[in-house]
Design a protein around this nucleic acid. Sequence first.
RNA 1: GCCGAUGUAACCCAAUGGUAGAGGUAGACGACUUAAAAUCGUUCCAGUGCGGGUUCGAGUCCCGCCAUCGGCACCA
Length: 875
Amino acid sequence: MTIMTAERYNAREAEPKWQRIWEDKALFSTRNDDSRPKYYVLEMFPYPSGRIHMGHVRNYAMGDVVARYKRARGFNVLHPMGWDAFGMPAENAAMANKTHPASWTYANIDTMRGQLKSMGLSLDWDREIATCDPRYYKHQQRMFLDFLEAGLIDRKTAKVNWDPVDQTVLANEQVIDGRGWRSGALVEQRELTQWFFKISDFSEDLLTALDGLERWPEKVRTMQQNWIGRSEGLSVRFALKPETTPNQQTSLEIYTTRTDTLFGAKFLALAPDHPLAKAAAVNNPALQSFIEECKRMGTAQEAIAKAEKKGFDTGIRGLHPFDPDWEIPVYVANFILMDYGTGAIFGCPAHDQRDLDFVHAYGLGVTPVVCPADKDAAQFHIDDVAYDGDGLMINSRFLDGMTPAQAREDVASRLEKVMLDGQPVGKRKVNFRLRDWGISRQRYWGCPIPVIHCDDCGIVPVPKQDLPVKLPDDVLFDRPGNPLDHHPHWKHVTCPHCQKAARRETDTMDTFVDSSWYFARFTDPWNEEHPTDPTVVNHWLPVDQYIGGIEHAILHLLYSRFFTRAMQKTGHCGISEPFTGLFTQGMVVHETYKDSDGQWLSPAEILIATENGQRKATRLSDKTPVDIGSIEKMSKSKRNTVDPDDIIGSFGADTARWFMLSDSPPERDVIWTEEGVLGAARFVQRLWRLISDISEIKPHSASVSNPDRVLDIRKAAHRALIRTEEDVERLRFNRCVAHVYELSNSLQACLSEQSDPCDPQLTKALREAGFILVQIVAPMMPHLAEECWHLLGGQGLVAEAAWPKADRDLVIENEITLPIQINGKKRADITIARDADQKTVEAAVLALDVIQKALDNQKPKKIIIVPQRIVNVVV
RNA sequence: GCCGAUGUAACCCAAUGGUAGAGGUAGACGACUUAAAAUCGUUCCAGUGCGGGUUCGAGUCCCGCCAUCGGCACCA
């Protein structure tokens, strides 16, 4: 039976219609006083860059599936949206287009809000916040003052990239090959006094608490673990020959985790900004210029690590802690970081690649001290690759024959007893790689740091009743530097203490501060008095499911974890971990295209055709051939972006959402293809036709029935339902999509074999399956689902309907097919009762012809029976 | 450079250590059509990036390599 339906589903009419109905019924406005169990699902809020991109579509489609599903399952769901609205692009736009950062930002927000609304997301727009709104940043300033009072904030110097021509601080991304992106001038490191959040006070807790984050991806926990970088090592003071030092200094403290390699030491190395390096440079112009050169690398770790290893011999000589006759040269080296440990190390080239590269440049020699177990100690030597594995100690006097772990322990306990200047030479020390969080930015478009500098009173917090410290509107971007600093009067204020003339802090906060607590603000965004309401925030937090890009795996998530702890300490919330469930989604990528001149072309400018199985691209305008390039992250510079508006305009939001959820697992990258979108669009029509057909089936009056077919349909529907539940819970949306396809295929096959009118039992089963199909589709394609729900005559809206109850008994099979392997290769299968015991299975297997043949009258060596899984016969 | 990940059919992907295939795209053939699109039906295609190892059995676990991607503290 095929019922011809002439009409097509018109997404452009249907989608706005259902969106209006949802909005009129305020379906997604969440009340804080609802008694149902809470569920907080949050996607990382966007930066208002101008227009949404496909990455947003993917991210928000995923969150919406979870939100709609949990709502159907009876939860009071909080699913809010806002804007990460401070940041550099607004200032760049201001300079380029003479627009004000605020008007640029708010115009972008308006555009993007409209785009998000057209996606049909079940968001509570009543809670919308923008971090650049004084009603938001007022509370952030308040918490800054509370943190200051609680001793969670520090002021100290930090290195910044300085552009000497533009006279401004540059972000790492604005430094290209050691030069400023605008001026092209060689960048220098400069030290500025900056504000810091003392995140390192929480190092140990941030590390150990990772174990409790069971619903976080393992890889993110590992990355954070490595970032925090706890190490147990030893601080060792090397004696210096005083006559070789610039200041009669008698010792140099280094930090190491490899005390076992002490007898392989070839040099000591100082960071270029180590005090001893600076002192040595005073009367040494060559060293001074080497240090200058190091500073020109900027502050990015990547540049420092990739640079060729270079050093400068200071002439200072250290003495080996176990041998006063053993002199070791002290270098300044470009790869030593002042921020880590003591800013000084001893170098053992045989067992550290960086040290090895370094000695190769300066001919300091290599002595291996750890020999791998499978190598001969007399023969073992190091060429270009350092050995960092385990083994036994060699060339190390009293340590020879120990394992490195034993040697580390032995050296530590010996050096604890060796005294130098009345202090032990070695001290055990736990060290963290994690540094304090520098939040000062010398920029306009950020949250002002609410303090005042007074010549007499020092640093004075802005009184809380004076908050917010608002950004001035009348600023100019006609000269480099911070507009707050050269504003005619903004920074000139009177000291709250002594009423004398004083200056406002002109630094603003890192935008990561804004995004470190927005999830808490969403719980009570209307609160004018306080950042949060304790009852409300503790009811909603932690976020049950947080979804966002893997690029935030470390900084944003770690800062938010710190900030939540700081809020807890200052009474702004009662918990320490903000996100119990985390999911990191992959990127949206697309093919790239170049014309014959090597210019990037956008997908809209080309036509792709298949010739002899080969995909060929031509330019639409002049039919010239186009090179199809590699698949890359969508970016404006490569012109391989697809505007969600275009897709939503031509196919509808459901098609865009469906395609973004299908195919690739959500944590992986997804390739945006024209074929894929067309496939998704076709399925929208197919599903609509299928449901139309089901809704039009007429049962005949006779009671004849085909019970097997009825059961098959019911089984297919309930199996799809159960699997969808499991997969939504685990955010495996691509598999949910597959279940929908599978069920549609089954229903379609059944439908095409039926006569009209239809068996009444089967009619009932098909209608039941139709409803289930619509409900499992609803979180993914909500508009189409409403339309189908309506066709089937469902009560009310599918967005309000309770999730159907799966009948688990239906999907249990009594007989199973068991594959039979001989020596691990599949050779046969048997069908046997599900609950058959091992002996029955074994007898059935041995009775098989193939097994008899393979055994050739021998006894099997072994029979492995994995119940309900597989049988392997070893012959 | 360091840290983290990924690599399966022409393409995207699936597979608690247990039959390499759930699903989609593309292709081929057929039905419908004057024809095309759409639709429906049938069907072809890999031994899992490379090299070793553990195991009765490896896409999955371990070691080494290659390629690609994310992060590296002032992009968000």
